[in-house]
């Protein structure tokens, strides 16, 4: 459609039947309109090229600086003082634990809120308020969620802990899952619900055994996007799980995480720490982008 649009010069017989006009002026006008169109098109191609180039630059930087730092040691050794050939094992494990628990706490809550919005609160004032608040939380600065968990869990209960980090991440997971769950439940045809009701299923059974399976891919996409988002979160963990340079699996103790370790290492003056930071940055970015692409593929299969 877009490529067929032309400057739209009047055709000869139209010109003879319409009001009299100067063909030279019409031609010049047509040319200038066409020129403007071409300029606009090139500018938007330029803008898109800049966008793609930025992504390419980020990925290239990560590959160039990060690939050299990746070795078996990164995955088998814990973080050590500068100059002693440490790895990132405790940071990777800590990130996996916190992301997993955060998602495990946040997903059921988000699922229930999404169900509430879609199935129970359509058009109600309370539902609109919940939807609004959830959308605000979706875009709220994550550092504030870290500060919030700090004031309610870390400061009163004697210190930084892995579980505080998990809860901060769970708070970030909830609105993401809410949004996709509500959107996906909305897409389920009324006929499907009616069929369940006609068979005598109570509402909750029709939601759990008909609607959820029908929206499975969409809900899964939301969970995957939430995992990708929280796996790279740094700011909320600074105030909650803090980071830990020693090996620790205790949720009651400060816990290492990949983003926080990268933050500490990237700003340090030691070459081997900076190299490890780039290796960690490469790992986390590839992981996050891979999850994003998988989430898109899962969703596309449905639609």
């Amino acid at each position: 459609m877009s490529t067929t649009a032309s400057a739209g010069l009047p055709s000869p017989n139209l010109r003879s039947s319409g009001p009299k006009r100067d063909p030279a002026v019409a031609l010049a006008l047509g040319r200038s309109r066409k020129r403007r169109d071409i300029i606009a098109r090139w500018l938007c191609v330029g803008a898109t090229t800049i966008g793609i180039a930025l992504l390419a630059s980020i990925l290239a930087t990560l590959l160039v600086r990060g690939l050299g730092g990746i070795s078996l040691d990164v995955f088998t050794k814990v973080t050590l003082p500068p100059g002693s050939d440490g790895g990132l094992l405790n940071a990777i494990v800590g990130s996996l634990i916190q992301t997993a628990i955060g998602t495990a706490i946040g997903t059921p809550i988000g699922l229930m809120v999404g169900t509430y919005l879609s199935e129970y609160a359509r058009g109600s004032h309370l539902g609109n308020a919940v939807r609004f608040v959830s959308d605000v939380l979706l875009s709220a600065p994550s550092i504030l969620i870290g500060l919030f968990v700090y004031t309610v869990l870390v400061a009163p209960f004697g210190g930084f802990s892995g579980i505080a980090g998990c809860i901060a991440l769970a708070v970030i997971v909830i609105p993401i899952v809410v949004r996709t769950t509500e959107d996906m439940l909305q897409l389920i045809p009324v006929a499907l619900r009616e069929a369940a009701v006609a068979l005598g299923a109570p509402k909750w059974r029709s939601i759990v055994f008909v609607c959820y399976p029908a929206a499975r891919e969409g809900i899964l996409t939301g969970v995957l996007l939430a995992v990708a988002r929280v796996a790279g979160e740094t700011a909320p963990l600074l105030f909650t799980s803090l980071g830990n340079l020693n090996w620790s699996l205790s949720l009651a103790q400060p816990m290492a995480s990949l983003p926080v370790t990268i933050y500490q290492y990237a700003g340090s003056a030691f070459d081997d720490w900076v190299r490890l930071a780039w290796a960690g940055a490469l790992l986390i970015t590839l992981g996050v982008l891979a999850i994003n692409i998988i989430a898109r593929v899962v969703l596309r299969q449905r639609s």
């Binding site: 098109r41 793609i52 992504l55 796996a231 740094t234 990237a266 982008l289 994003n292 898109r296």
Partner: peptide, 29 residues
């Protein structure tokens, strides 16, 4: 409006991936 249809999805995805890159990576970059 401008991109050929076959290019819209990959280019759109690439732009969306820009939003998925963690904040700390932008900091280092």
């Amino acid at each position: 409006e401008v991109a050929p249809t076959w290019l819209r999805r990959p280019v759109g995805t690439a732009i969306e991936l820009l939003a998925a890159v963690p904040s700390i990576i932008y900091g280092m970059w």
